[in-house]
Design a protein around this nucleic acid. Structure first.
Length: 411
DNA sequence: ATAGGGCTACCG
DNA sequence: CGGTAGCCCTAT
């Protein structure tokens, strides 16, 4: 950090701030492209992560709006390319999300009862021949078996009214949304917390550790905000704000990839903190005005700089926390009429219907002996018992062991 | 992961 | 019926 402290300091901070806003899940929703263009274009190669973050943000937003269209396919393709740049594997979740999104994009043209009536043919041509054709050409990993299967099914559907009808009536959208949601969740989790936040946590820890020798590592991070005294002025503010916001970070590990930002700020710490805060406020202001005037804020942004809203800065954070109270004055985007779902997402359905009962098998004396041995050695930790003789106990689950033991000796 | 309640097939 | 063995479900 020292090295880049002088000239590229602001650049790093821009990245951090952008990243921070892109990752937070709360309102106001950030739109990736305006945010990135609002910042000076930081187009170095190490921005891949930031780009991934922004693509994810776009996908999330699209999902929140309920929009699963060909723009989504674009986003997924970009995501794939970025992940290749990062030399990470293309995961199953991305493949199936892409597959189902492609199917959904086609499926939405199956509104007429017969294939030839509407634009189904055009959709096939555009999406499957051209778009996916290009994927095939560059041997993309997105071309999965699943995808190929659907390709042939959809092509068949064009000829066979019966197949057309079946696909037409199936609930593709539900699957597409599920897979996309899954993908987004997985990716957010993979990214961990933002650089800004991990920095804040680090400083928080340092501060907590130094005064008293309480070594409370592990998941001590959680609600640390309250315990810090506010006497530290703006520093404390920053930390609280940052610490409280992100929800999706689940695993509280400081991401390995975050290490590039590792070196801590001990010089000019205060100055940096102050600058960060200014950044946050400024960006917040941009976001506020841009989300308020719908999502085409590119030009709106300029004027809004001076017409900027006023005093509500102070209560802003609280307003966001109670989701929705402030959203009433935001323009609600026009949502496409949702297609009816065969399965209500509200009703908790078991997607795999009740497993057929495992056929009953009596315990052999050998198995019982193994069980006794195991328990003698490990007590009632069934996991260990099973591991102590995995061969004999191969088709007995840990629960089976427990049940059998109960049968043998009452309680 | 484990404990404990419940269900079902079977038997006397 | 009641009892038992094996298996399933779910709260902790």
């Amino acid at each position: 950090f020292d090295r880049c402290f002088c000239d590229s300091r602001t650049e790093v901070m821009e990245k951090w701030v952008a990243e921070f806003f892109l990752r937070r899940q709360q309102n106001p929703r950030v739109y990736a492209s305006p945010l990135l263009s609002a910042l000076k274009p930081v187009d170095s190669d190490d921005c891949v992560k930031l780009k991934i973050t922004s693509v994810l943000r776009d996908i999330s937003n699209s999902l929140i709006r309920g929009t699963v269209d060909e723009g989504m396919l674009d986003l997924l393709e970009i995501l794939e390319k970025l992940m290749l740049q990062e030399r990470s594997v293309i995961m199953g979740s991305l493949k199936s999300a892409y597959c189902w999104t492609a199917v959904e994009c086609t499926h939405r043209f199956m509104w007429p009862v017969t294939a030839s009536d509407g634009f189904f043919g055009d959709a096939l041509e555009r999406i499957w021949k051209k778009r996916i054709g290009m994927l095939k050409e560059r041997e993309s990993d997105l071309v999965s078996h699943e995808l190929l299967k659907w390709e042939s099914d959809l092509n068949e559907a064009f000829e066979e009214p019966e197949i057309y009808r079946k696909i037409r009536e199936s609930n593709v959208r539900y699957n597409a949304i599920s897979h996309l949601t899954q993908l987004v969740k997985e990716q957010w989790a993979l990214l961990g917390c933002s650089s800004l936040e991990s920095e804040a946590r680090k400083r928080l820890l340092k501060r907590k550790d130094s005064p008293n020798a309480s070594r409370k590592r592990g998941n001590g991070y959680g609600r640390a905000g309250e315990t810090t005294d506010k006497s530290n002025g703006e520093n404390a503010n920053d930390v609280e704000e940052v610490g409280g916001l992100e929800k999706h970070d689940g695993a509280v590990k400081v991401n390995e990839q975050e290490q590039e930002h590792e070196p801590s700020l001990n010089k000019g710490e205060i100055a940096v903190a102050r600058e960060l805060k200014d950044f946050l406020l400024e960006i917040q202001r941009l976001i506020d005005s841009s989300t308020r005037q719908e999502q085409e804020p590119d030009d709106a942004m300029e004027q809004s700089n001076d017409v900027t809203p006023q005093n509500d800065e102070a209560n802003r954070t609280e307003a966001e926390d109670s989701e929705g109270s402030s959203s009433s004055r935001r323009v609600r985007p026009h949502l496409p009429t949702p297609e009816p779902l065969n399965v209500s997402p509200l009703k908790k359905v078991r997607l795999e219907r009740p497993r057929p009962r495992r056929p009953m098998k009596f315990w052999t004396p050998e198995e019982v002996a193994a069980l006794r041995e195991g328990v003698k050695e490990f007590g009632k930790s069934w996991k260990d018992v099973k591991n102590s003789n995995p061969v004999v106990l191969a088709d007995r689950s840990e629960v089976d062991l427990k049940d059998k033991w109960r049968n043998l000796f009452g309680r």
